[in-house]
Design a protein around this nucleic acid. Sequence first.
DNA 1: ATGAAAGCGCTAACAC
DNA 2: GTGTTAGCGCTTTCAT
Lengths: 353, 353
Amino acid sequence: MNIRKIAELAGVSTATVSYVLNGTKNVTADKKKRVMEVVSKYGYQTNSIAKSLRVKRTDNIGVLVEDIRGFSVPAIINGISERAGENGYRILLNDLQMLESLFNKYDQITQHKDRINAAISLLLYGARVDAVIYVGMFDRDITGIINAIDKPLVIAYSTASETAVRSVTYDNENISCEAIKYLFNQGHRRIAVITGLSRTFPARARMKGVLRAFKEAGYEPDASLILNGDWEYAAGYSRGSELVDMKDPPTAIFAMNDLMAAGTMDAISDAGLNVPKDISVVGFDNREIAAYLRPKLTTVDIDLKGIGLAAAQTVIDMLRNRDLTTTPKKTVIPCKMVLRNTVATINFSKGAL
Amino acid sequence: MNIRKIAELAGVSTATVSYVLNGTKNVTADKKKRVMEVVSKYGYQTNSIAKSLRVKRTDNIGVLVEDIRGFSVPAIINGISERAGENGYRILLNDLQMLESLFNKYDQITQHKDRINAAISLLLYGARVDAVIYVGMFDRDITGIINAIDKPLVIAYSTASETAVRSVTYDNENISCEAIKYLFNQGHRRIAVITGLSRTFPARARMKGVLRAFKEAGYEPDASLILNGDWEYAAGYSRGSELVDMKDPPTAIFAMNDLMAAGTMDAISDAGLNVPKDISVVGFDNREIAAYLRPKLTTVDIDLKGIGLAAAQTVIDMLRNRDLTTTPKKTVIPCKMVLRNTVATINFSKGAL
DNA sequence: ATGAAAGCGCTAACAC
DNA sequence: GTGTTAGCGCTTTCAT
């Protein structure tokens, strides 16, 4: 079936069929009806390849992901997919499969520059997509990685400081500040933090939030309570053990991700202490495991779907040429805490301060 | 840039450019060189939309997923994506977003029949893909859901009994048999099982394997030790508690998924008993949480990437018209156990039998 | 309001 | 070995 046969069957021209199908021009009710009857009778659908060739638009958004197995990626795609679908766009997915090669090498993406750009150019200049969303596995600046292109590009989860590139991430700093303030409000004063790999962006941003919380609460952080981790379970365990073994241990520990929080909780248990009665713990990420730790982990939830939604919206706005000058270069999605069972309230009267 | 300009610049015809780019005909070395030079100078890439229109082939595989957030889905896509890429195919992803609507309603997919078929027909008859892979969130028979289509279709993770439809799943029965035999080999005789929702396919298939293991080992299963669960954590906890409270409790429990295994482990701990010293536990799925439970859960790993690889391979074989008559209608990927720390070896001399 | 026809960029049949 | 050209299915300009 094609538009010519539909036209013949309905006794009109192909132009008319096109007009009624796309609503591009007024067509008399009679002809419109005839066309629609034939169309539905044969279940005709426009050949979108031919349409694309003609209108130079594919209605496809290329989604380039560093690795679909990254814990944050599926939920982001979920958001992209929803918003794209609502607006008549399809998703062309390209998985770079960098999970193994990027493990613990958060900033060594430069080595993959060529592959990434080749994938983008294949997508773009093969005329297969109208725009691309690059979904990072890590929250870091990938400035300089993606070559300038003449179609809309937005980076999700990662960022880039180039002015030409829009990105959408989440608010590391404010939520970290909030997490610490929450601990203050629960009566904690000796608060330890186990950081992520200290050179990484989220580790620094989260630390900024932590420090701000202390400042605003009017307390001086105890430097001996700030320990370097590396995002992995094992670091959480060993740093947690150190903390527990101190002569004056903290009453609460903020681990900068759930994996380290899990390690810390295990270290606390293994020392014969109880979470949260003896030591409270808060994590970051709200991975699936957070809900299955014992007790269930209080942590911060990243609105991944929201990131995907916003990324898709940005790209669609760019495609439709909405006034982009008002759109901020960098969209920051707020996070929120999910309160579960690893934080205890300290009885102020006890003099724990 | 297009093929005509390349042709002009190289001083040849468009046909010649096409011949060298596609290797479809012999071209003299001289002309070939001239063409390649112009092509690389301008970074020309074939407009694949125009090519598709002409050759009536898109080199796109439509991947329709019930929900990308399902725990098994990303790894399957990873496999599909890898095999597709190796063979020059792209992935057009369509996320049906049925996570919420399908939660705990494993077999109520019939209600979504229209939406599913609309998505397929949009993909297919909009001439946007050459074939489709349907990725289920659950391991169950979806016969009758997908209308017959005239292009290759393979179902991954779910199955269909229609002869026309190929599917690839994993081996519930054999691995369940193996899991129980493993427990026997570790000296266990009083083995309990907490099933999944008993009407679901994997619950029945896994039970079949369990029963076969008992039979082949020459033991009669104790019916009071076979308890119905529903795949959720809470059921694992309550069934686990019942088991623990028995006058003659089991020495090992096979929970039919990791979520229930987690619940069971917690019930055991809460009863003041130790996993695995007092009671061993084995799960199923090898979700991320399995590696973070304490102790780490011994479970069965489903080769999800392998399912994706096989699904893509099947579809590609069909597209290339390999001899499909020899391809089995249903491909079953074997599973393997991942041995961690929740199973103890029982000292036979103790007379535990 | 409607239709004829050009043309999007490509491949491949056909002629030389 | 190489070039000319028709035509894939559609949208849209232009004429009526």
